[in-house]
Design a protein around this nucleic acid. Structure first.
Lengths: 344, 344
DNA sequence: CTGAAAGCGCTTACAG
DNA sequence: CTGAAAGCGCTTACAG
């Protein structure tokens, strides 16, 4: 087989224009599928470009256009598969509209978040999908607006009703989880994942306490366990609960990551989840169906949220004058074995 | 609080030059931290730029330079957290060298892979980290070389010893897993995740069969179960094994994803993993430590592989003339409860 | 150490 | 429907 020579990437629209016998304006119009050019001309130009091994130079187009086909995606926690699923949904949707995804993982690091946003601005990203890090200042929305960088925040709102936002009804979700446990006869129900600095945690915890109160169940502060938002956090939280004089009979977890840690600790102690202790998670990550036992959880539709976030941003790019677009998706309780419902 | 006006992003090096009383060449040199400029001049220029709200325009620099600070990252399967961890490691390393990560998830789709690689080429990516999709043609390396696009393949080699590659010793890893089970007294050992079209699966399966033979244990084709590389695949594979007249006493899984499905099925059937059936996974994803019971697995050091891949690519960018850089990381067996070792 | 000049490869009014 | 021209904001030899 003959070895193809290394191409120099040096074919430009000028070369195509010359070869096809048209002007470079025409070539440019063809490449952008303009309707101004006669069909036959367009075909000829495209064939010539193909034949000459032409590669569109986006750097040049970006400079000229003052923008790009790049969308920045800033994610706070990729070790949580909820956000990975969200990312997958968002990226797929962007690609199908010919945008590509510049990814940055902040790991909840605010300085890193500032840095990557600044970098995306330099890069002339057309817009940004932002899953904000913990402690992100509400001023960030002002900054991004001053930059003229369109954005949509996801999951965590930055207290700015004037910005585009896609999230889910965290309050309702945890209420559904708690109510379900109460319906199964539980009264000593714990909550693991308390974190007063995390707005989502605050809301979810509120859903939990309000639900208890609505059912005339006293709220026991000992049963609201602070923890890291991680599997290890859940494990430690459960360990703490198991060491109480009176261990609760059921646990509502801030999210599935924590729930997985909780299941692990229950198993390690030789107890049976669902029989000895009921556990409910939140988020509905793919692996929740494959826990041992399968995890009852509040499904938030991660991929759909990602897709929707992309869609909102694309809509915003098309029409900057649109009023704020805000979506709050309804969660869904998926009942599996970890809550013990199937033992009744 | 006064509302800052929307900046026009219109400050250029010309404006800074004028304001600072130097030429724009000097400004450019300062922005690129050239040592050609006197320190005081550099300071003055930087202060002026800061004061004027200057934003470096990478599109312009990219066009002029013919390259960019963008690295493409093409990943075959983000639903496998092994690759997510790898991505996290790679992205972090790139960012620390002032490169940013263009992400594309192929989901093992070859056409999508071609498309995103072409897009990264248009984008003038400086290089690409490629976790190839299944069935990727070995010719892809030739294509990328002809494009002049530096790349490193990760995990799956494309049979091209002349390309940079970072992976791990799959053969050794599965051998360690199998040998461990044999050491625990097992002789009926199954392998789930057989896939003759997946080069990694072929190698891992070879490690398994060779290890059996070395120990004079006959290889039983019935115990080599084909399956999707997913939790569901593992679950179905285990279901099949449990329905055999003589169920094996131990299972080596192609990876942790499959192992998690296997644990789930064992649990669902009312059996106890580690006591009734020993299970070993491969990859060492973070969640393997939080399975019920914790999963014995071959740790491949996902984040380290990602970091190393970035490092190799950066080295290649600095010195294109270097001979091929190839790393094969040594795996490590992490013994937990799922193999039953702690019951003895 | 600094300045004037050319050019990277596009797109877009504008004139025809 | 097509062509000539200007310009996006940088970087880099080159001359001084």
């Amino acid at each position: 087989m003959e070895r193809q020579p290394v191409l120099d990437d040096k074919v430009t629209i000028m070369d195509i224009a010359k070869a096809a016998g048209v002007s470079k304006s025409t070539v440019s119009l063809v490449l952008n599928n303009s309707s101004l050019v006669r069909h036959e001309t367009a075909v000829k130009v495209k064939e010539t470009a193909e034949k000459m091994g032409y590669v569109y130079n986006r750097s040049a187009a970006n400079l000229r256009n003052g923008t790009s086909n790049i969308i920045g995606m800033v994610v706070n926690d990729l070790s949580n598969s909820f956000f990975v699923e969200l990312l997958i949904g968002a990226e797929r949707r962007l690609l199908s509209s010919n945008y590509i995804t510049l990814l940055a993982h902040t790991g909840e690091d605010l300085k890193l978040q500032d840095q990557v946003l600044a970098s995306m601005r330099e890069q002339k990203a057309a817009g940004v999908i932002l899953c904000p890090a913990l402690y992100t200042s509400p001023n960030l929305t002002t900054t991004l607006k001053n930059w003229g960088l369109p954005f949509v925040t996801v999951m965590r709102s930055l207290n700015d009703e004037q910005s585009d936002f896609v999230g889910c009804d965290n309050y309702l979700g945890i209420q559904m989880a708690t109510q379900h446990l109460i319906g199964l006869g539980h009264r000593d129900i714990a909550f693991i994942g308390r974190d007063i600095t995390n707005s989502v945690s605050v809301v979810r915890q509120q859903g939990y306490t309000d639900c208890l109160e609505k059912n005339n169940i006293p709220v026991n502060p000992q049963l609201m366990v602070e923890s890291d938002i991680s599997m290890m956090g859940g494990k430690k939280g459960m360990k703490k609960l198991l060491s109480l004089r009176k261990c609760p009979s059921a646990v509502v977890c801030y999210n599935d990551l924590i729930a997985i840690g909780v299941l692990s600790e229950i198993n390690e102690q030789g107890l049976i989840t669902g029989r000895d202790i009921a556990v409910v998670g939140s988020d509905g990550v793919a692996s929740s169906a494959f826990c041992s036992p399968p995890l009852t959880t509040v499904v938030l539709h991660s991929e759909k949220i990602g897709e929707l976030a992309s869609q909102v941003l694309l809509k915003r790019l098309k029409n900057p004058e649109l009023p704020p677009i805000r979506h709050l998706l309804k969660p869904e309780l998926r009942i599996r074995k970890s809550c013990g419902a199937y033992l009744k």
